[in-house]
Nucleic acid binder design. Structure first.
Length: 359
DNA sequence: AAATCGGGGGA
DNA sequence: TCCCCAGATTT
């Protein structure tokens, strides 16, 4: 009957009447495209993900096209978006759908959840958007809206919090309007009940919102953990030999897994060219004739858990290097644009002032 | 339960 | 600077 929960749900759907954000995947019913959009939008703002969604739809119109692509090619398309394991999981799941499911996208919540890279949120989103199945989404927007309206102070980044909010979210979901409700609550969180400076003046829940009434808006939702940022200093060796340049594929358990980079020497501070030349790669450069050497400016990139400073040191080699561990590949300079690089290398490669100067 | 995985944007 | 974004996986 007229519970506070019913009030919330009906008011939300009323608010949503005219679609708040006209997003390209909202009218979409193809589960493959919905899946693409949801993976791309994990921890990613709508405006940042939009172009990638269009690119993937264009380059991989069907799940078969994605499955048939090479992993490096998929990563190249993902370049610049971050969280690159999403791209690899996406590709792996596409191959699984084609080989094990006969190319038919899974149509139950349980089966959708089996896809690599699909967790509780994404499974609920696909199940509701594509098949109108009654599963409530629980993303950053939902945590924020519910914690404020209901005045819930349980930290959202704990097991207890996740359980509590999941139960509440599912209770609020109108089973026959799962898709519309899920989109409504996320749009509401993104356009009205924002993290900072929410638009409470135009909020239809104002008079019933616990956080507004108790002036707790800036204080909810509560997170328990704080992040620590580590500083790192990368020295990239751009080793030119004739028309070729050396590249290395990152495989260690670290950032940018499976992306390419120049041979890297990491230290606890930025070093000068001579020091790097002497120390880097365990004397690998020894005995090699170097005709030119110079360095770029220091590029900086701040990530969630680390702050990276990178400097590119340029060498023209007359002799090929001895690659003891078979870690590096030689490629033609003009093919650099075919490889997926971390942002910081992309910056360097596209820095016009340096680029024109060097080639 | 805690640690990691990116890059962009707003305040 | 710090926080957050249509989170998931690994340890």
């Amino acid at each position: 009957m007229g519970t506070i929960h019913d009030f919330f749900t009906s008011q939300l759907l009323e608010w949503y009447k005219p679609t708040q954000r006209p997003l390209p995947w909202k009218s979409e019913k193809n589960p493959y495209y919905i899946w693409l959009s949801e993976i791309i939008l994990q921890q990613t703002r709508v405006e940042q993900g939009r172009a990638y969604y269009e690119k993937f739809k264009k380059n991989y119109p069907t799940v078969q096209d994605l499955a048939n692509a090479g992993e490096d090619q998929v990563l190249k398309n993902w370049q610049g978006l971050g969280y690159y394991s999403r791209a690899r999981n996406l590709h792996q799941a596409a191959k699984y759908i084609v080989s094990d499911l006969g190319g038919k996208f899974p149509a139950t919540h349980e089966d959708i959840l089996k896809l690599k890279g699909v967790g509780e949120y994404t499974a609920a989103a696909i199940a509701s958007f594509a098949y109108d199945l009654p599963f409530a989404v629980l993303d950053g927007n939902v945590f924020r809206v519910l914690s404020r309206f209901f005045g819930i102070k349980t930290p959202i980044d704990t097991g207890e919090g996740k359980k509590e909010f999941k139960k509440l979210a599912q209770k609020l979901l109108p089973p026959l309007e799962a898709a519309r409700y899920n989109q409504a609550i996320m749009d509401f969180g993104a356009t009205i009940c924002m993290p900072k400076k929410p638009k409470c003046v135009s909020c239809p829940f104002r008079s019933e919102c616990s956080a507004f009434i108790n002036k707790n808006i800036t204080f909810l939702p509560i997170k328990a953990k704080k992040t620590f940022k580590k500083e790192r200093f990368f020295h990239y060796l751009r080793l030119n030999i004739g028309d070729f340049v050396y590249l290395h594929k990152r495989s260690e358990k670290d950032i940018w897994q499976h992306l390419y980079e120049f041979p890297l020497y990491e230290a606890d501070r930025i070093l000068d060219v001579e020091t790097v030349k002497n120390k880097a790669f365990d004397g690998l450069l020894e005995g090699v004739n170097i005709v030119i050497k110079r360095q770029s400016k220091v590029y900086k990139q701040v990530l969630s858990h680390q702050k990276i400073s990178a400097i590119f040191m340029e060498f023209e080699l007359l002799d090929a290097l001895v690659d003891r561990n078979n870690n590096w590949i030689q490629i033609k300079k003009e093919r650099l644009k075919e490889y997926a690089f971390p942002k910081i290398i992309d910056l360097y490669l596209n820095d016009n002032s340096l680029y024109l100067n060097l080639f």
